[in-house]
Amino acid sequence: MRLVQINDTLWVAPQIDPEDFAALKEQGFTAIINNRPDGEEPGQPTAAEAAKAAAALRLAYTHLPFSGYGFDEALVRAQQAALAAQPGPVVAHCRSGTRSLTIWAVGEVLDGRMAIEDVDAFGRSHGFDLSGVQRWFAGRG
């Protein structure tokens, strides 16, 4: 399981399987945010399966699925609320981690905590291509 720390409260990751949840809890994570739609790939755990496994471990679980850049500001705000509701670190995942980091970065730009011209370098510094953030903002106009 590859986790990339973004700040004190957010880590992003590729697909996390329910079998990994106990290890995450042992590491101090309090919540999981799943940004993958069900059925994106064959054999992928469903959100219902993951939610059940998380509940058994008393981990908060939020399913906020989207594909590509098919999200709106309401989904950005829902992701921010899911992060803010947790007393400890959260791991957000999708197929590669890029979507989860993209939606976070969009929120940072919307709220003025990051300049849009700094997003690409920030993404590269964490091993991700965040060029989609620019495309998302360009599509809002």
Results as ranks from 00 to 15, higher is better:
141 G>N: 13
72 D>W: 03
87 P>F: 02
89 P>A: 14
53 A>F: 11
66 F>M: 11
44 Q>G: 02
107 G>A: 01
63 H>K: 01
100 S>Q: 00
56 A>C: 06
16 I>K: 01
32 I>A: 00
110 L>F: 09
29 F>E: 13
120 D>M: 08
68 G>R: 01
127 G>D: 01
1 M>I: 14
70 G>E: 14
138 A>M: 06
85 A>V: 13
68 G>A: 11
90 V>S: 04
90 V>T: 08
46 T>W: 02
65 P>T: 00
100 S>H: 00
29 F>Q: 07
137 F>R: 03
14 P>E: 11
73 E>M: 11
61 Y>G: 11
79 Q>F: 15
119 V>R: 08
117 E>C: 07
64 L>T: 10
111 D>M: 04
103 I>G: 03
109 V>S: 04
98 T>K: 04
135 R>A: 11
70 G>K: 08
72 D>L: 01
8 D>H: 11
107 G>K: 00
106 V>R: 00
120 D>C: 03
100 S>T: 04
82 A>C: 07
86 Q>Y: 08
62 T>P: 01
114 M>P: 00
17 D>W: 12
78 A>P: 06
34 N>P: 08
119 V>L: 13
124 R>V: 12
33 I>C: 03
119 V>P: 01
16 I>F: 02
38 D>R: 05
60 A>I: 10
75 L>F: 02
25 K>L: 03
73 E>Q: 14
39 G>I: 04
81 A>T: 13
110 L>I: 10
14 P>H: 02
13 A>Q: 00
55 A>K: 10
28 G>T: 09
140 R>D: 05
